[in-house]
Nucleic acid binder design. Structure first.
Lengths: 210, 210
DNA sequence: TGTAACTAAATTGGCGCCAATTATATCGCC
DNA sequence: GGCGATATAATTGGCGCCAATTTAGTTACA
């Protein structure tokens, strides 16, 4: 029986993820200041851990650091937003060749489920549910590309684009359009049509979904 | 007249860059442990700054952190290396459309100079000179793509691929091949031939240059 | 009454100490 | 003489205090 040791090594990394998720879910809006004391209480962490987490997020460009002022959620201008979008299209369409080559039937079936679940959530679910299902859908796709580095790079950029002032799904119409896109992607996936998939992804990103 | 204040905010970030450069220049080889005390003396920094810098590099995947053991230069396996290479090809070829569209005559002239300088350095220069000129050459190209996010992403991946055990220019032959590639790229650039440029870049990366 | 200087409160940020852990060396034992 | 256990040295890592800085509030003065 040994005393508890390093819950901290874990806590530090986990805290960064938690804060990142809070930002993803718009609990902190772009431009908003993240006060260390608040985070300390909110997440029941020590000041030191909070600072480490904030520093990590700043390196990842999720938040911005202003000396002697603090950290705030990154607010990206239109030009940067377009640059991110363009880069995402490059990466996410590029991943499609690998996806159609590596994905198995089970994964496609699961994607089908998720696409349906998203449609349902679009009508009745909360924003958080919608966001999570959408995230799971795209996670599964990119995880199937067979290139972990590519997958990781895609997600890093996706996270950065959250800082946009443009709301995730601006309208209910946009939400329904996303739902339709998901089903279309599953269809193209079943046909192993990488080109069609890439075209769908491009439009999906250009329409600015989550 | 006020006393000197925060040279530290700067020092922390600068230190991370310095250590990163040292790793780039192979002063620390992949797998090698980075002892905090050594870095403290080597770079005349406080222990705290060293740790911050190491943490930053760990987040960037330049180095690896092993709890209670320390930090060591990331050693990447062949599979990861290929994954990085594939992703780089996607990004760097994708950048070429923007490059031919945005680059001006002055930049092309400068690239011509750098290509020549590299050829010279390949014959007579030190490894560090070769590396720096090569870096400047590619920096200038990707800076001309008109997409800062893409540029940044490219360099992040390029830095990660340094962790490969494969030496930068394994042979003098490879070095000369790189020099030829550079001149060919300048030629394609002058003709605004994005497709040819992309093909050259792909081969350049597949041959594993710096 | 508006503005500017001053004061007080809140927040951030630099830094160093010491415990926990791991590597190294010494010694005894098989 | 080789090998394992123990002692010692070296290194890492968690954490909190207090100074520096900024912001808000207040008062004095034109």
């Amino acid at each position: 029986m040994q005393p508890q040791r390093k819950p901290n090594r874990v806590a530090k990394r986990a805290l960064a993820s938690e804060i990142a998720q809070a930002i993803r879910l718009r609990m902190y809006r772009p431009g908003e200041w993240l006060r260390q004391i608040d985070l300390e209480e909110k997440f029941q962490a020590t000041r030191f851990d909070v600072r480490s987490a904030l520093e990590e997020l700043a390196i990842r460009k999720t938040i911005e650091h202003v000396p002697n002022r603090g950290y705030r959620v990154m607010e990206i201008d239109l030009a940067t937003y377009r640059a991110i979008r363009e880069t995402r299209i490059l990466l996410e369409t590029g991943a499609m060749a690998g996806v159609v080559a590596h994905i198995d039937a089970a994964a496609i079936a699961r994607l089908d489920e998720l696409a349906t679940a998203f449609s349902t959530a679009a009508a009745t679910g909360t924003r958080i549910e919608q966001s999570e299902i959408n995230s799971a859908f795209h996670h599964l796709i990119y995880a199937s590309c067979g290139n972990p580095v590519l997958e990781e790079t895609i997600w890093a950029l996706r996270d950065r684009s959250r800082g946009s002032t443009v709301t995730v799904w601006a309208s209910h119409e946009a939400l329904l359009a996303s739902a339709r896109d998901h089903h279309a992607m599953v269809g193209a996936l079943k046909r192993r049509d990488a080109a069609e998939l890439a075209a769908l992804i491009t439009r999906h990103i250009q329409k600015d979904m989550g």
